[in-house]
Design a protein around this nucleic acid. Structure first.
Lengths: 128, 128
DNA sequence: GAGACTACTTGACATATGTCGAATCAGCGA
DNA sequence: TCGCTGATTCGACATATGTCAAGTAGTCTC
């Protein structure tokens, strides 16, 4: 994969028009793709699912649940954090992670294929 | 990435409960992840966006638009086809591609973070 | 059928990614 | 302070991915 991907801050929920709202530019497409990439792994999908349904979990719980080393899970959680899909806070000896539903929702809405009328790129349908 | 990913048929729109509907199993998570992976590339996001807004385009048009070789674009389109997100038919000397909005919509709905009540895994909210 | 044009496949390459073990960092309790 | 436990970072490795050039396969027009 030549043409290295730039590093961008993705922690805020995505705020661009849905893919179906008009021909998407390079920058927008990159934003969408990077966020999707953060979720495009079976382990991370499971982690998000657990966080969404259980509320708050520590790294050790998550590692035990998915059956991977804590180092690997920490790595996945870092990806989710960088993409703004999850966040964690240290409390005592543990770090407690939770999902950021507003970011996930915004990402889901970008995929909405229903043609949007009168929406050019840059608009911000973020509900959160 | 040890633990090679199995090959699965993804051409039908995804039909599992949203990630927030309950702790997702390995198989389901894999289905979701593979489809997301198919879209988790800036070039493919742009291709989908063009197909959604323009309706039908041939490989050559798409290649010219994204500024990549036709071989590369053909490769990306094959990914989208395998994931059920696009389809193409040969008409004369060209192959005309179009998006499959129902598949994209189903994928977007899986990302819905709103807690679903009474939905266990395996249910099928497919609208298409 | 010959030639031209479009699309797909294959092979090769550089880069990115997922995984682990080991080392390091952070907080707690004796 | 020291040791313990949990989390992150680092280094290494195998595999996956994006890209192109070159070759191959359809389809059209002459």
């Amino acid at each position: 994969m030549p043409r290295a991907l730039p590093v961008i801050d993705l922690t805020a929920p995505i705020c661009c028009a849905p893919v179906a709202a008009g021909r998407m530019g390079e920058a927008e497409a990159l934003e969408v793709a990077l966020r999707l990439k953060a979720l495009a792994d079976p382990t991370r999908v499971r982690l998000m699912s657990m966080l969404l349904t259980e509320g708050e979990l520590c790294t050790c719980d998550l590692a035990a649940e998915v059956g991977l080393s804590d180092a690997t899970v920490s790595h996945h959680l870092a990806q989710l954090r960088k993409a703004g899909l999850a966040e964690g806070t240290r409390r005592g000896m543990n770090v407690w992670y939770r999902a950021r539903p507003e970011s996930l929702g915004a990402l889901g809405r970008v995929l909405d294929p229903t043609p949007q009328i009168g929406m050019a790129s840059g608009s911000s349908p973020v509900t959160a």
